[in-house]
Nucleic acid binder design. Sequence first.
DNA 1: CGATCGTTTGAGTTTGATCAAATGTGGTGG
DNA 2: CCACCACATTTGATCAAACTCAAACGATCG
Lengths: 260, 260
Amino acid sequence: MTSPPDRETVRSDVAEVLIRKLEVFAPLSDVERDAVSALAGQTRSYSPREDVIRQGDRTEHVNLLLEGFACRYKTLEDGRRQILSFFVPGVICDLNVFILERMDHSIGALSPCVFGAIHRRQVDELIDRQPRITRALWWCTLVGEATAREWLLNVGQRSAYERAAHLFCELYWRLGVVGLVRDGTFDFPVTQTELGDALGLSAVHVNRTLQELRRDGLISTQGRELTVLDVEGLERAAMFDPSYLHLTDTDVGAQRRREK
Amino acid sequence: MTSPPDRETVRSDVAEVLIRKLEVFAPLSDVERDAVSALAGQTRSYSPREDVIRQGDRTEHVNLLLEGFACRYKTLEDGRRQILSFFVPGVICDLNVFILERMDHSIGALSPCVFGAIHRRQVDELIDRQPRITRALWWCTLVGEATAREWLLNVGQRSAYERAAHLFCELYWRLGVVGLVRDGTFDFPVTQTELGDALGLSAVHVNRTLQELRRDGLISTQGRELTVLDVEGLERAAMFDPSYLHLTDTDVGAQRRREK
DNA sequence: CGATCGTTTGAGTTTGATCAAATGTGGTGG
DNA sequence: CCACCACATTTGATCAAACTCAAACGATCG
């Protein structure tokens, strides 16, 4: 799936993805775009269940997910694990690293993944020289933070059924705006055990909850694919309000058209 | 409690608190310190249960908690509420506001509170001109984010008993480094219902859980005060690891000395 | 063709929620 | 100073959601 591209290609890939990400916040000038393009990126592939960074690591670069499905998680001494967020292609995983000294959580691949890595020093320079880019980067972290808050509301207050519904709504939107949903269907290479770790439920209970969602005609699953059959029903069941995703008007418009 | 200070005093209060906060990350130069001091701040008082900002609001300024106890929270349509974090004096509550368009959560006073408000435009200018200050501000938001992640782990994986223990450990540390803990005792003007909203538990169950913690000799409560009787026991019960708070070495050192 | 991993099902248990009422506590006004 | 009110805490009893353990069933892969 990932024929190793030569270095030049790689560099432009990483920069391109990053520029697209930043321009969601505000269009960049040519100078700014060049500054981002100048970032040298190397890519690395990971297999499922492999860690990209581990809790406690002192990190040297910022990771950009180019392909695949990954997650951020924390574990307790006794092995209990909480998945804190899912990463979809195009996201910057850990802008934390160049400000905080150590990782206070881990990042792991869920499916085969390709990450682009940008050295921390390069980002540091960008911050010193390009306030608008800084703001755009900051914006990315704030959106991530908003998502974390919604997850806390989700796990703290919603029932298992609502929780699962909510997660699928979120994924439906986030994958939708990057064009990874086709007829309500998207790739979701996550086991029920992992889903349990994300929702704060046991794997067994996840299984039964999925059965309920299927029985109610809200979703269906086939292998690693998930289909949302009834968006409105799912959003109603989850009491889903997409505003926490801080999508732009064009994102929202495109999504709504897609649903017609 | 809060005799209204004249405007000059107010201004220096807000700036002083902010400078102290930022210098935890890195010492500022005189120029930088002046830039922060130039921020005009007005204060406003709130009574318990009053909202400072509400979900959906388009906000005009950044709020700094000067006195009292406040929290960040989100609600579901049907009234269920999740408290997302507690604010202790000295924290910047919502650096989000000048990057994100709308609040995706609310901020409410838990006890009588005094907030300092800095206009968004002023912070904008600071960001354009002072990269080091930008970095320090960003650092503040990242620490808040790290705390939110730990809460998610807390609510998602820990039992009621562990959860409560963990929250008290966090407060003990956070209040400790700002000098608000004396002999293990600190002010905690939060009802059991509010505690329930923070921990994802019913008020009744919070009550029983507190009884257990007391029975085990870990804490005691008297009115609005909470005393940690056995720090080590509490940290063990909670599987508490303070690294997510990203305290400085001096913070940690001071805290450990205090515990002797 | 085993072996491994993920999903599904069943039975029994635990944790925490809900409902209802009693008990404390602090503040206010007569 | 007391009566009263509004809230907060505490207790008891019952119930439901979700967990655990155990086993069967299905894929997928070398």
